[in-house]
Each structure stands twice: as C-alpha cells, then as structure tokens.
Design a protein around this nucleic acid. Structure first.
Length: 547
RNA sequence: GCGAGUGUAGUGUAGCGGUAGCACAAAAGCUUCCCAAGCUUUUAACCCGGGUCCGAAUCCCGGCACUCGCACCA
C-alpha cells in the first residue's frame, strides 16, 4: 500500500481540518467537515452499539462545565498548575516542585516559594549544571469565568467524573446489582502545552468512556473474554505474545477478567470500524507509568504513520474515585452485598426529647440539632451544656443480611479523535494501477449510503437520476447526487471519501428500469432493478466479499 | 513553553526587492454510452501586524500557525 497524505486529503475533501482558518488557526482545535462529521457519527454509534449490546450497560450524558469540588476530589485540581523551570543554557525543562523535593524539601505549590527555594538551595540544571530561569506556571485545565466575585468553573478534562458522582443514580437504575457499566460520549478539554500532530493531541477532544463497577469480592464481568480473535500483548518485560483476550487472561498476562473482557469488546469495535487488528497491540503500563491508584493498566495502541499511538486506555482505578468523592462530598456512594443472615448487637442512642424540652425550653431546637449530629456538648451563650445526659445508650439485637462496600472501577476509555485518525490511516490507500486514492472504510461507517450518478447529463438520464435520488432521500437513505464531470472522475471522487456504492443511471435504466451499482473496492458492477435499491443498500450485500 | 526550520489560490508548487506563474481541484458551456479523456471560458493565493525602502511575497522585528527536537501528556 502506498502512503497517502491523510492531512492533505482530509483538508481537501472536508473530512477534518484545523479550526478558525480565516483567523490564522488555533493550535489543537480541529473541526470535522461534511464527510468527517458523518463518519464520526457512525463510528460513535458503532461504539455505542458494541457497548450497549452487553445488556447491563447504560448511557449517560453529562455537562462539560464541572463543579470545582468534583475536580478537587478527582485530583485534577491539584494538578491544575504545572510549575516548570528551564535551564538557561541547555533549555531542558524541569518541574520546579520535583527539583525541590529531590533535595528532600516538601514542595509548596506556590510560584514565588518555589522560585526562592531553588535559589536558596542552589539548585542547578541536572543535565548541564547551568543556571535555572524563572519558575513558570502552566494552566492545565480551561476555566470558565462566572463573573465578578465568583470563583471560576472548569471544563472537564475527562468525561469519567460524571459517571462517578452520579453513581447512586445508576446503581438504582440497575436495581442495585453489580456489575454494571455506564458509557458516555462527549468532549473533554485539556490545555496541552504543545498540541501537535493534527488529531493526535488536541485541546478540545472527543472521548468515548466507559466506567464499569464491581464488587471487589467478585470482580468478574458477566461474559467470558473473547476467544475468537488474537492480537499482540506487550508485557512490561518487553515480551510480545499473540493471544486472544481469553487466553491472555488465563495465562495471567492480563490479571483482571473484566479488563480482558473489555479488550475483547474493544477489538470487536475496532474491527467493525475498519481498524486493522494486525496493526494493533495491547501494551501494559510499567510500574512507573501507572497512576498511583491503579493496579493494572493496558493501552490499546495502533501502528500508524505517527508510530504506535495510544487510542484506548483500560485502567483499573480501584476504589480511588468513589472513595475520594465520598470523602469530599460527605455522601454515601456505597454499594451493598448480600451476606448470610446474622444477628448483631447494635448500640443505639435514644434522645430524651421531653427532658430537653423541660430543662432548656428556649434552646431545645439547637440542642436537638446538636444531638442529631452526634455532638457531646454544645455552647449556648457562654454556657457549656453537656449533652450526654439527654441520651440513653441501649443495645439492641438486629438481623443484618447486607453490608456496604466501595465498588471497584475498571475504565476502558476510548479517545475518539485518535481512533478516527487510525481509521483513516489504516484505510486510506491508493490503487495499484492508477495511484488514485480510495478510503476503504466499512459500509457501516461510510459517510453516505450511495452516490447517485447519471451517466450523461442529458437525454433524461439526469431527470431519472434526480427522481431516484429524491425517492431514496424520502426513504431515509443518505445519498448524494452528482452530475459533474466524467463518470470515472465521479467514481474516484467518492472513492476518496469512502462511499462504497455508486449508483449509475444509464440508457438501459430508461429502457429496462434497472441501474448499475458499482462497488468501491473492486470497481465491479451489478445491475439491479430500481425498486430493489433500498433493499440492496439496506443490507450491504458486498459485505464479506471485500478485499 | 524553549530551540531549529517553514508559511504563496481548495490542494501541491514556482518566483525570493520592480507588484504573482504552473499543475491538479472547483464552476459554466461544448463534447462524452462506465472508471480523474478533450476543448473553450471562469473563479481563486503571497498567514497577520509593524518597520526599512521610491517600491516588500521577497529584507528586518513582533504575533499566529505548522513541522521536528526538548519538556509536558492526569
């Protein structure tokens, strides 16, 4: 396969291009054009279909503006500022707080403090011993101004948090049974220091994320991992093993069963959208790459003209997110498991309301409130009141058959834009004979069902073609009409954007009521009756015959 | 963000102090009975802002963008 310049063709054919072109562009912000948007929609619905077909998966659609406390709990807020300092002679960049901590001094995240400390400790460039420059601050999340006197809000750096903070809603939706998973598709925002390489690193990007929740005592998905497709697994020892997700799990390469399961789902999705599994691998994160809360993380990587790029991350997040949201919000995000019935003694406190009322009639409301909060004393005016005398402790026997636990989370997070890039990379090719470009994406994600082309632009061929076009539109097919240029040129035009079928209206159409349908990859044609077109386009009869 | 390089119609390029040319694409017409045919016509660009100069796409400065390295990448 000859190499094709993806960016050039995407710009030229309106698949994607840099945003704000007339104003000089903005880095890391790309728009999807007419063809790109259609392909995008279809890829996303393939993903949703793949995930939702599990049965115990539901969808969620959350806001992009995010409550600041959510980001404090998730840890993003603390990483909001990146304090960097650069060597003035060799221009190597370091994290200012890291340099200070390496000297055994706990860092304070403050620009001036770090600046002073570096000077005070006489820290030099680690590489060349040169002098370090000013400490600079990089904002890593985008903030949203709320107006004067109000704290700014932030745009979400990932879609995942919405699924954690609403955990109880979903838990109820699934009638309090684990495991289940939530999925969401939406935009996220990260102020990357140097966004680069077209769709690879964006500042505003599309994510397709899934959060699955498990009882840690039974960390199993409801189905077995896929066994019908083998792909490369790259372990931390640098060993590459070809295995199916099921085998990888059984051999202990992938420890977590659900993780192996989601790998299988990911592979199913990739192949449905035309990603070449021969150019895919799962790579395990080394210890130093792992987030501190994760016990196991695998990246799905695709080989493209950018090299191996990460297109999906499957991370074991443990109980990190839910625990932190419980801590920060003070709300219960537990799930419950059924345990064998047993009797336990439970201490209960009974408040003697009569006594409160009679002893301090004017302060009774305050006292009762304090008692309910579990306080043992309260100060009213300048008098300290001991609350214990209003409470009698009792023990009672209760039967319990439930216990609380924090669910563990496994997150397969798909980066849409990188997947889109990979789809184009794996499917853009040029014909052996002519060198003309064709985009061999599957029919399911092709931007239109077909292009309707009159062979000639005269002798009623055009009016006949028009009426077929209008009729297909009415029947909800996505079709495009084109009568400009020679027929070969038009075929080629639609090859480039991945349209699988071209329907040509010729002189026999007028006589016999049939048309030719030409297939993109093989250039072969079949004749079918006009009235059979909808069925034909509905079933993709060429499926399976493709190269 | 730093360093180096680059920025000319939609795309790919030529011009590199005298006011922009080519190819492909696109549009109109003619022609054409199935794979970018041909002919005629047309549309369309010097990234933005300053400076030097009689004159700047060309030289200088600043910005923006892109590419490559460094750093960053939850």
């Amino acid at each position: 396969m000859k190499s094709v310049d993806q960016e050039e063709i995407s710009r030229r054919r309106g698949i994607y291009f840099q945003g704000f072109g007339i104003y000089g562009g903005l880095s890391g912000l790309y728009d999807y054009g007419p063809y790109g948007s259609r392909i995008k929609d279809k890829v996303i619905s393939e993903w949703k279909e793949t995930m939702l077909s599990e049965g115990n998966v539901a969808e969620f659609d959350g806001t992009t503006i995010t409550h600041t406390d959510v980001l404090k709990a998730s840890g993003h807020y603390d990483r909001f500022f990146d304090y960097s300092v650069e060597c003035e002679s060799c221009h190597t960049k370091f994290r200012a707080d890291d340099l200070v901590e390496k000297k055994g001094v706990p860092a304070v995240l403050d620009r001036q403090w770090l600046q002073d400390k570096i000077r005070e400790l006489g820290i030099k460039c680690e590489r060349c011993q040169g002098d370090l420059g000013e400490v600079k601050i990089q904002k890593l999340m985008f903030s949203v101004d709320q107006g004067e006197g109000m704290e700014p809000l932030f745009l979400r750096p990932e879609t995942a948090q919405g699924m954690f903070v609403n955990f109880k809603e979903y838990y109820r939706f699934f009638r309090e049974k684990l495991p289940f998973a939530m999925i969401t598709v939406g935009r996220g925002y990260r102020n990357e220091i140097s966004p680069r390489r077209a769709l690879y690193r964006l500042r505003e990007f599309n994510m397709m994320e899934c959060e699955s929740f498990f009882d840690p005592q039974n960390e199993m998905w409801i189905h077995d991992p896929a066994d019908d497709v083998r792909v490369a697994f790259l372990t931390t020892d640098g060993v590459e093993i070809k295995a199916s997700p099921k085998e990888a799990h059984e051999k202990g390469i992938v420890k977590s069963q659900p993780m192996a399961y989601f790998m299988g789902l990911a592979l199913r999705f990739y192949s449905r959208v035309g990603i070449d599994l021969e150019r895919m691998r799962f790579r395990k994160h080394r210890k130093e790459e792992l987030s501190h809360y994760s016990s196991e993380t695998w990246d799905a990587e695709a080989l493209t003209d950018l090299g191996w790029i990460e297109i999906t991350g499957i991370a074991h997040r443990g109980t990190y997110d839910l625990t932190n949201h419980m801590k920060h919000s003070g709300k219960d995000l537990y799930a419950q498991r059924v345990i064998p019935k047993r009797e336990v003694n439970r201490a209960i406190k009974e408040i003697d309301y009569q006594k409160v009322k009679s002893e301090s009639p004017e302060s009774s409301a305050k006292i009762i409130a304090a008692l309910k909060e579990g306080k043992t004393s309260i100060t009213i005016g300048n008098q300290v009141i001991d609350l214990n005398r209003f409470v009698t402790e009792k023990e009672e026997k209760v039967t319990i058959d439930r216990e609380d636990f924090v669910p563990v989370v496994i997150e397969p997070a798909f980066g849409f834009d990188r997947i889109f890039y990979t789809i184009l990379d794996h499917n853009l090719s040029s014909r052996e004979d002519s060198g003309y470009v064709l985009l061999k994406i599957p029919y399911t994600i092709s931007p239109y069902n077909a292009a309707i082309l009159p062979l000639m632009n005269k002798d009623d061929l055009d009016t006949k073609a028009r009426s077929i076009f209008e009729d297909l539109l009415k029947k909800k097919f996505s079709v495009i009409y084109d009568d400009a240029g020679s027929i070969g040129k038009r075929y080629s035009r639609y090859d480039e954007v991945g349209i699988v079928y071209c329907i040509t209206i010729d002189y026999d159409t007028i006589k016999g009521g049939d048309v030719t349908i030409r297939h993109r990859d093989t250039k072969e044609q079949v004749r079918i009756k006009i009235e059979d077109i909808p069925d034909y386009l509905g079933t993709d009869p060429w499926d399976g015959k493709k190269n």
